[in-house]
C-alpha cells in the first residue's frame, strides 16, 4: 500500500515488514484517511513475526491525535503478544511539539521497542 503525500496528509507506505509515514497530518476526514491504514496494518501484523514502523511527522492536528493513539495501541498489543515490534519516532531537533508528542506516545509503550530519534 502506498499513499502519496497531499497538503493535508503524509506519505504512507506499508509493506509486509515495514510501515513508513512522513509529512503533515490534518486530513479533511480523519476516518477516511485512518481506516485503510489501520486495516492494512492489522493484516501485516497478523502475518508477520516482526514489524518496523518509522514515523516522521512535522505536524498533526488534534483530530489526528486519536488516530495515532489507536495506531500505537495496536502496535503495543501486538508486541505484548510476543511479536517483535520496533518503532522510530523521528523529529527535527528544533521541533519541540513533535518531540513532546513522541514522548507522550512513548509513555504507553512497554513491550514494543520505541525509539525517539532526533534528526
Amino acid at each position: 500500500m502506498h499513499l502519496e503525500a497531499t497538503n493535508r496528509t503524509p506519505e504512507v507506505s506499508i509493506s509486509d515488514s515495514v510501515l513508513e509515514m512522513k509529512g503533515e497530518c490534518y486530513p479533511e476526514d480523519i476516518t477516511v484517511f485512518a481506516e485503510p491504514i489501520l486495516e492494512s496494518l492489522a493484516e501485516k501484523l497478523e502475518a508477520c513475526d516482526s514489524y518496523s514502523v518509522s514515523l516522521e511527522l512535522r505536524y498533526f492536528n488534534s483530530s489526528s491525535a486519536k488516530f495515532f493513539f489507536d495506531f500505537f495501541e495496536v502496535l503495543e498489543e501486538t508486541a505484548a503478544k510476543g511479536k517483535s515490534i520496533s518503532i522510530e519516532w523521528r523529529y527535527r531537533s528544533s521541533d519541540n511539539s513533535m518531540k513532546e508528542a513522541g514522548e507522550d506516545f512513548e509513555e504507553d509503550m512497554e513491550d514494543a521497542d520505541y525509539q525517539l530519534v532526533e534528526i
Partner: peptide, 16 residues
C-alpha cells in the same frame, strides 16, 4: 519553524 508550526496548529484548530 517551531513557532510557525504552533501558529499554524492554533489556526487549524480554530478553523475546525
Amino acid at each position: 519553524s517551531d513557532l510557525t508550526t504552533r501558529v499554524f496548529g492554533v489556526f487549524i484548530e480554530q478553523a475546525q
